[in-house]
Structures are given as structure tokens and as C-alpha cells.
């Protein structure tokens, strides 16, 4: 093996620009965080709505929820991303499509957030549904018996319980969002994966240093997400359940 170690590579300047490789990694981290966090927030909102729809008695609304989940869950995230980026602009009316392709600001970023949030929402919807269905039927009957409308029953009785119950699977999903965001390199978002591929080339093949740095940064993102959710989980435990010691 002939590997030329150079851990100082991060403080060297990239030949084609004013940045150091460390700057590059930070730019990559920034975009990874921006894509993942935006997608997480939108995915959580859309996923909650669709998850609730799947549990309501109205058949048509429930079908919309089911169709949403099946559509966005059964196509690989990378393929969805490519569809949004290369295919959907062609399906739009001519002038709008042209604008999206040529003039839309932050085109790559917006597309990545859109694709990732829809993908994430389908998985969150499943968890929200499971959380709602894990509650005993009596809870919603109690709400209705109190004179709440169905919407009020969801708002004041069912959802406050369901969301607290599903925090552990939501934690994994939050961590998954950071991992899934790695596909956005494919449409040219300057995320950590994109930057590492560039850095391997520009640094003359410092593969190990580059990938170690990127891997550690991804690891830290997942860890931060995990700790944050852990704090929320502890603060919102439901009294009387097994988890609430």
C-alpha cells in the first residue's frame, strides 16, 4: 500500500479558489443541515396531516392519506429527487417550466427539500397513524361524549397522546433525514457528500482524510438529532405509562 497521509490537508487552500478545504467542509455541513432541517419541518407537518387523514372515518380522506404514503414510500428517494429535478419541469406549462429550469433561485436546494420532505412525510404519516391507532378507542369516545367535535377530539385528546407515544420512532426518522439528505449531491447541492467527492479530486486523492471528516460530521448531525429528541422525550412523558418511571 502506498498511501500518502496528510492530515494537514484541511488547512491547505483549494487550488482553484480562495477557500481552504476546511471552509469547503463547513459549506457542505451548512447545506446538509439546511436541506435536512427544512425537509424535517415540512415533512413533519405534511406527515402529521396525512397520518391523521388515514385514521378519519371519511373514506375519501383516508384514501388520500393512503395514496400519499404508498406513492412517496415506494419509489427510492434518489429516483424521486431526479423526477422532481429533471422530469417535473417538463410536465409544467411551457413558460413556467422554462422559468423553473433557468431562473428559479436556489433551484437545487428547493428541489432537494421538496423531494426529501415528501419522502420523509410518507414515513412520518405511518408513525403518526400507528400512534393514533395504539390509543384505546375509549379515548376518542370520551372526547366525543364530552361534546367535542371530531376535530376538537383530535386536537385536545388524541394527538397530544399520540405524538408523545411516537417520539422514539420519530427520533430515528429525524436521524434518517440527515442520512437521506446525502442523495442531494446527485442534483448538485453542495452538501457534505458532494463536497467530499470534490475534495477527493481536488486534494489529489486524500481519500481517508476527506471521508473521515465527512463521516464524523454526519455522525455528529445524527447524534445531535438524537440528543435533542431525547430531551423532548423526557420532558413530554405521559404519566402512568410504562416508560414514565
Amino acid at each position: 500500500m502506498h498511501y500518502h497521509w496528510n492530515w494537514g490537508i484541511f488547512f491547505q487552500q483549494v487550488s482553484s479558489s480562495d477557500d481552504t478545504f476546511f471552509n469547503w467542509l463547513m459549506i457542505g455541513l451548512g447545506w446538509t443541515l439546511a436541506v435536512s432541517l427544512s425537509a424535517w419541518v415540512i415533512g413533519l407537518i405534511l406527515g402529521s396531516i396525512m397520518g391523521v387523514l388515514r385514521t378519519v372515518p371519511n373514506r375519501k380522506l383516508a384514501f388520500i392519506g393512503t395514496a400519499w404514503v404508498e406513492l412517496f414510500r415506494n419509489i427510492p428517494i434518489l429516483v424521486q429527487l431526479i423526477l422532481w429535478f429533471f422530469v417535473v419541469p417538463e410536465l409544467l406549462p411551457e413558460r413556467l417550466g422554462l422559468w423553473v429550469k433557468q431562473d428559479m433561485p436556489a433551484k437545487e436546494f428547493i428541489t432537494a427539500v421538496l423531494a426529501l420532505s415528501l419522502f420523509t412525510s410518507s414515513r412520518i404519516a405511518e408513525q403518526v397513524r400507528a400512534g393514533i391507532q395504539s390509543l384505546s378507542r375509549g379515548q376518542s369516545y370520551a372526547g366525543l361524549a364530552m361534546g367535542f367535535t371530531q376535530a376538537q377530539t383530535y386536537r385536545y385528546v388524541i394527538l397530544p397522546m399520540a405524538f408523545r407515544i411516537i417520539i422514539p420512532p420519530l427520533t430515528s426518522e429525524f436521524m434518517n433525514t440527515f442520512k437521506n439528505s446525502a442523495v442531494s449531491f446527485a442534483i448538485g447541492v453542495w452538501d457534505l457528500t458532494f463536497v467530499s467527492r470534490q475534495m477527493v479530486e481536488e486534494s489529489g486523492g486524500q481519500v481517508i482524510e476527506t471521508l473521515t471528516a465527512a463521516t464524523v460530521l454526519y455522525f455528529l448531525c445524527a447524534l445531535a438529532a438524537n440528543r435533542l429528541m431525547y430531551v423532548i422525550e423526557n420532558r413530554s412523558r405521559v404519566p402512568g405509562l410504562i416508560v414514565a418511571k
Partner: peptide
């Protein structure tokens, strides 16, 4: 389990 699969793919292919 805590790093993206794309990273693992790159690690092995480049190393």
C-alpha cells in the same frame, strides 16, 4: 447505522 449509505459506498470504492 448512523452514517449515510452513500458515504459507505464511497469509502469502500475509493479505499
Amino acid at each position: 447505522r448512523s452514517i449515510p449509505l452513500v458515504m459507505v459506498i464511497l469509502w469502500f470504492f475509493l479505499l
